[in-house]
Design a protein around this nucleic acid. Sequence first.
DNA 1: GTGAAAAATGTTACCGGTAACGCAGTGATG
DNA 2: CATCACTGCGTTACCGGTAACATTTTTCAC
Lengths: 334, 334
Amino acid sequence: MEKRKPSLTEVAEAAGVSKMTASRVLRNSGRFSEETRARVLKEAARLNYVPNRLAAAFGSETASTLVGVLVPRLSGGLFGQVVEAIDATLTRLGYQTMIGTYENRPEQEEAWLRSVLAWRPAGLILTGRAHSDGTMAMLKAATLPLVEIWDLNTRPMDISVGINHFDCGYEMGRLFLSRGRRRIGYAGADLAAPGLGRARLEGFEQALRTSGADPVAPEILDDRPSFYQGYYGAQNLLSRHPELDAVYFQNDEMAVGGMAYCQAAGLSVPGDIGIAGWGGMDVATVLERRLSTTNVSTRALGKAAAEALVARIRGDVVQDVREIPSILVPGDTL
Amino acid sequence: MEKRKPSLTEVAEAAGVSKMTASRVLRNSGRFSEETRARVLKEAARLNYVPNRLAAAFGSETASTLVGVLVPRLSGGLFGQVVEAIDATLTRLGYQTMIGTYENRPEQEEAWLRSVLAWRPAGLILTGRAHSDGTMAMLKAATLPLVEIWDLNTRPMDISVGINHFDCGYEMGRLFLSRGRRRIGYAGADLAAPGLGRARLEGFEQALRTSGADPVAPEILDDRPSFYQGYYGAQNLLSRHPELDAVYFQNDEMAVGGMAYCQAAGLSVPGDIGIAGWGGMDVATVLERRLSTTNVSTRALGKAAAEALVARIRGDVVQDVREIPSILVPGDTL
DNA sequence: GTGAAAAATGTTACCGGTAACGCAGTGATG
DNA sequence: CATCACTGCGTTACCGGTAACATTTTTCAC
């Protein structure tokens, strides 16, 4: 058998043109007659031609259809959804993603970047706005289209598509106050974190301070924010500060874990303790009461990021700061 | 500025050898003297040389370090963890992953495969053992190292690394019976599913039939298995069959959703209804009682799959069927 | 010291596209 | 009718590695 894939040259020969003309037709760039176009496309279809992306990307720096996407993790939280949306959009637009995770560790981000740049991608999507010196140096040297997602950055390196975490925290802080909460704690978890979404805590604390409700020292666990960390964080926090009447969790998974702790400890929610999360995650649908949280449209974020990147790659005009709105859900647990 | 990346030729010139020799040293293949080796490596380091993977993969079909990985989804469930483990392992072994999702849809699997093959990967990791004709045709034509994960396939196309879902279901069925359950339902969800893990249901039903406990018609929702689908599935099932005394859910997320429904409906667990899930997911840690489930080591599965693939790529001997053990957790909800 | 095998290194061609440039034909313009 | 701009297509060179083969140098037995 050994039926090698047909190359552009074979398509061109079948259509009776040079391979350059065939290349032009298939990329729809440059000039060619309608008749030529029809012949080339017909032969390409007949031979079941599949372009060798490797050769294309290699041959011309500008012809790459590869995009690198880096997020802290894929399991748990919302990043899986974000990546799904990015991938779906980029696929639709004719790009191929290289997805990686870095567990919030700068050295892993750097290693990933080095490795992906060896594939000469057309653009990158990174998470957060804090990067190590090594990462910054490589990004500068590469001068690639780049979208930073998640934390909105009003002075992005290139493009930022994100959420205003500060405002999320601030609004939630106001809600805590309006529900009469005054002795308030915060529980988060951030594996070796340079602080993704840390702005949420800052916004929250600022809101509390406007009314003199001084927040207690936040409980930040050195792990990924998950159910168990929520349970454990609530336990730690409430042991240290039994006087608390409300806890704000870094996300809904932690909040659900926190509610489980309250239940186990015989504390009623929202009677004894008010609880809120963030993210509008599916898991909250299992609660008896509607969780107080902030809904985030991960799909919209991923889609917007992918579209912005492609526009930049293509040289179109792009808004370089794009905020994805989030919606406060007052809920019944606060 | 415009400081282009140094190429192999520049490294070779700096070291005073031909680029072929430099190539041999850097890939550690072929012969070269210790002295030459030291010089080349020193110059490569000094110039901060990063090999152009694109050129390498393009230049020789056998030199690709690209691996395609396809799973149904990244968010929810266990696939995110599996992919994280695969990616970590492949990265450690010097490979680069191209990750995609297909939502259990054959046509998306096919489109992804076509697109990834255009990058001439060194190997593939696919999910499940049922593939469309078009997919099979492409796989046969490409003759690539291939690992099928998730469902153990005793007669794999190439290599299978998976879980014995039938046994998981069978053992769980025995547990249901040993706990005195006799009127038993099943709730699952599989988006346009060709039945990933469907063998679990078959094993379960077979176990029940050995004792004459005929299972009622399973409730299979046309969506991804998630909390809400568990809630909704339990509601459907228990409305149709109020006599049920136990429900087996496709996974832990659905089981947690099902427990939420029972609580809302005033049914006690395990008093009125026994409940079990599958997967050993984190979310179950928030339950008051320990969920009856089957623990699965997603990390071990991903690692084993990646290692098997690399061994096959390198031409080492590989066990072509590898079962990842799963552990029944009797729990307190049954 | 010589010849042959082994080790170390070099040469050439090629992978499959794309950019840059060249050139013939065509129609408009003055 | 000569000039020019534009259209449509071809030619050539090149991207940065690697395989295959050729050549030089070293090693070692006799």
